[in-house]
C-alpha cells in the first residue's frame, strides 16, 4: 500500500499503528511532512503503540506544534491590539480560528499566515492601523499589487517588520472575480466569540469556508490537511448539534457554495470515513479525480501526477477569473518568468 494511503488510513483510524512494518513509517513520515500533517498525525496517534523512534519523533512534533501555535495566536493578539484603538472588528479565519476556538482539528495543525476577515467598509482603516503597528507591504511589483486589490478577496499580504510574520486581510472568502460570491456581510454579522475573546465564523460558515478554501480557492495543494479540517469540523459540530448538517446545507446554498461543500463532505467520507446523513451520502464520478489529486505523492514524499497537478492549477484560476482575465493573468505571469 502506498505511504499516502497508509497516512490517510491512520488518520481515519482504519489501520492500527501497531500493524505497520517498521520500514513503512519512512514513507508515512515523509508524506505527512509534505502534507504539513506530521504533528496532526502525532496527535492522532498519541498513546498508540509505536516504534520507539517514531514515538520520540512524534513527541518532538507535538511539542514543536504547541510552540508554533502559541506564536500564531500571538499574531492574532497583536492584530487585536493594533485594531482595537479604532474599534475595527475582525473575524479570525482558518488555522488561527480553529486554535482560538479550541477545535479538535487544531491539534498539531500547522498554521501559516494570520488570516482575518473585516467588513469591506473597514478595510482601508484596517490597513492604516496595521501599517502603523509595524506591518509592511511585502515588496511586490505593481501588477501583483493591482491584481490583489482589484480582483482578490484580500489586501496584498503584509508582513510584520519585527516578527517577520504575514497577515492576510480578507473582506470576503473567495476572490471577487470568482464565479461564486458568498454573502460576506452575514459571515461577519453571524460570527461567534470564543472564550478568549476572538471572533470566529459560526460553525456552518466555518465549514463552508473550509470547503471553499479546499475546493474553490486553490489547486488542492495541501488539500489533505484542509480536508482533515473539514472532516474534524463537521464531525465535532454534528456531535454538538444534531441539526448541523441540515443547517450547513441551507447555509451553503445561501453562500452559493452548495457544490463545493457537498463535494468536500463526500471526499471526507471517502478518505477519512466521515459519517454523512442521507441527502449528502451520494456518489459523483468526478470525485475520483479529486481523490487522485489529493493522493498524488510517492513514498518519498514527492508530488506525482504532474499533468493532474497542472490541470488543477489551471482549474483553480479558471474558477477565480473570467476567461479573458485569466489569459491576461497567465500571460503576465509567464512573461515575468
Amino acid at each position: 500500500m502506498s505511504a499516502i494511503r497508509t497516512l490517510v488510513d491512520l488518520l481515519a483510524g482504519r489501520r492500527e499503528a501497531a500493524a505497520l512494518a517498521p520500514r513503512e513509517w519512512d514513507g508515512v513520515i515523509s508524506v505527512a511532512r509534505a502534507e504539513a500533517m506530521l504533528a496532526t498525525l502525532a496527535h492522532r496517534l498519541e498513546g498508540a503503540a509505536l516504534p520507539p523512534a517514531v514515538a520520540a519523533l512524534f513527541a518532538d512534533q507535538r511539542a514543536a506544534a504547541a510552540v508554533a501555535q502559541a506564536q500564531s495566536m500571538w499574531e492574532a493578539e497583536m492584530a487585536r491590539r493594533a485594531l482595537a484603538s479604532e474599534r475595527i472588528e475582525f473575524v479570525l479565519l482558518k488555522g488561527t480560528a480553529y486554535a482560538a476556538a479550541g477545535l479538535s482539528c487544531a491539534e498539531g495543525r500547522q498554521i501559516g499566515d494570520l488570516d482575518i476577515l473585516v467588513l469591506v467598509s473597514d478595510i482601508g482603516r484596517a490597513e492604516n492601523e496595521l501599517l502603523e503597528a509595524g506591518w509592511e507591504w511585502v515588496k511586490s511589483d505593481p501588477y501583483d499589487d493591482a491584481y490583489y486589490r482589484e480582483h482578490m478577496h484580500e489586501l496584498p499580504p503584509l508582513i510584520h517588520k519585527a516578527r517577520d510574520r504575514m497577515i492576510d486581510v480578507h473582506h470576503t472568502i473567495l476572490p471577487q472575480t470568482h464565479r461564486i460570491a458568498p454573502d460576506a456581510l452575514s459571515l461577519v454579522s453571524d460570527a461567534v466569540t470564543t472564550e478568549n475573546g476572538f471572533a470566529v465564523l459560526c460553525p456552518t460558515d466555518m465549514a463552508c469556508h473550509c470547503a471553499a478554501h479546499l475546493l474553490a480557492d486553490g489547486d488542492l495543494q495541501g488539500g489533505l490537511r484542509n480536508l482533515w479540517d473539514f472532516h474534524s469540523l463537521t464531525r465535532d459540530f454534528a456531535a454538538a448539534d444534531p441539526g448541523f448538517w441540515g443547517k450547513l446545507d441551507a447555509r451553503a446554498d445561501r453562500h452559493g457554495l452548495h457544490a463545493p461543500v457537498h463535494r468536500a463532505a463526500r471526499l471526507a467520507r471517502d478518505l477519512y470515513g466521515s459519517a454523512l446523513p442521507s441527502g449528502w451520502d451520494r456518489h459523483d464520478p468526478a470525485d475520483l479525480w479529486f481523490k487522485r489529486r489529493l493522493l498524488a505523492r510517492d513514498d518519498w514524499g514527492h508530488a506525482t501526477h504532474f499533468a493532474l497537478q497542472q490541470a488543477f492549477y489551471i482549474r483553480s484560476h479558471w474558477l477565480r477569473m473570467p476567461p479573458l482575465m485569466l489569459s491576461r493573468h497567465l500571460w503576465t505571469k509567464w512573461r515575468k518568468r
Binding site: 510552540v67 502559541a70 506564536q71 495566536m73 500571538w74 493578539e77 516578527r163
Partner: peptide, 14 residues
Amino acid sequence: LGDLTVLFDRRSMQ
C-alpha cells in the same frame, strides 16, 4: 546574563 537581561515571553514565545 551579565549586563544584559533576557526575557522570554511565554505567550509570544519570543
